[in-house]
Amino acid sequence: MISFTSFPIQPDDIHNGWRAHHPDIAEDTLMDLDDEQELFEAGGSKLTYPGESLTSSQSYMRGHGTYVDNEEVIASVAGTVERVNKLVTVRAIRTRYNPEVGDLVVGRITEVQPRRWKVDANSRQDAVLMLSSVNLPGGVQRRKLESDELQMRTFFEEGDLLVAEVQAFFSDGAMSLHTRSLKYGKLRNGQLVSIPPILVRRLKSHFIALPCGVDLILGLNGYIWVSKHVKESDQEGEEGFDTEAVYSNQNDEIDESTRLAISRVTNIIRVLASRFVPLSDTLLLEAYEWTVDQEGGVKDLLQEDVGDALVATVTARL
């Protein structure tokens, strides 16, 4: 019986075999291929700046945020380099939110129109929340009447903050939102933080409850809501929900320790965002525990040396 033994192929063997079939290929070309491989090995992305040469246009195709000059793919914006097969793109750091169906967003009511609200969701144009896409007294299945349209400002008015889900898109590209679940709706008892949307990772759940009594809503549009912890309701938006509690404009009483915890979490988010660190639930929890161990004040987090130490410690742990 004949048996065959296979030996692992070394990278040098690949290069030597390739060079034997392609004797006209110069040595520096092989080095360029190695550099390009290292460029995309670290998680498939890296930070770049406008005008930086990324790779050869003969080896890769250019995508959004790049252009070709002298047979080289060059970044046209500052952002992260992303590669899908042979397509190289640069996702800009400072850019408007690009929505997808099912995304969780935090927004602010900008205008009340007939049977709809206009919502600032940090996108290229205002989103739309239809009257038929919200929870109303009497259950979500009932028809919306003229009396409901006359009472629209009792539900949402200009300046109100809300959390909603992207339901669909209109023909002009505007987002259509809905708040048919009691997890969504008007926001109270907290503070809004705005960061670049690119720094908000897609997680299994964007509702995060920290052990310090603070709730987080990580909107994929870059708007983050930090608020007092609220117990989950047993009702799921069907019949008989408390209308006054859901659409109330009055904040609850917040004790001093909770206020300090909200301010601490808010400053942590600002420090991480200022250094372009993508946010996640585990990262925020590690950062909060580190700041508590330091026994410093809430304002101390905004100092440059403390912020640098926070980012270095948390990223090293994770």
Rank of each mutant, 00 (worst) to 15 (best):
N85D: 11
Q58R: 08
I74C: 02
E52K: 13
K86V: 06
S56N: 09
I74N: 00
G79H: 02
T66I: 08
T55P: 00
S59Q: 09
L54G: 07
M61P: 02
S53E: 13
T89P: 03
V88F: 02
Y60N: 05
G79I: 02
Y67V: 06
E71W: 15
T80E: 10
A75E: 03
S59H: 14
S59L: 12
H64T: 07
G63Y: 01
R62C: 06
Y60E: 03
E72C: 04
G63M: 06
R62M: 04
R62P: 01
V68I: 12
M61F: 15
S53R: 11
T48I: 15
K86N: 14
N70K: 12
Y67M: 09
A75T: 04
G51Q: 02
L54Q: 04
S56L: 14
R83L: 11
M61N: 09
G65W: 05
E72L: 01
A78L: 06
E71K: 08
T55A: 15
T48K: 13
E71S: 11
G79V: 03
V81W: 02
V68P: 03
L54C: 09
V77E: 08
E82Q: 07
V88S: 01
Y49P: 06
G63K: 01
S59I: 08
T80Y: 15
E52Y: 15
Y67F: 14
L47I: 14
V88L: 00
L87Y: 14
H64C: 08
S56Q: 06
N85W: 06
L54R: 03
T80K: 13
E82S: 07
S57W: 00
L54F: 14
T89S: 15
L47Q: 11
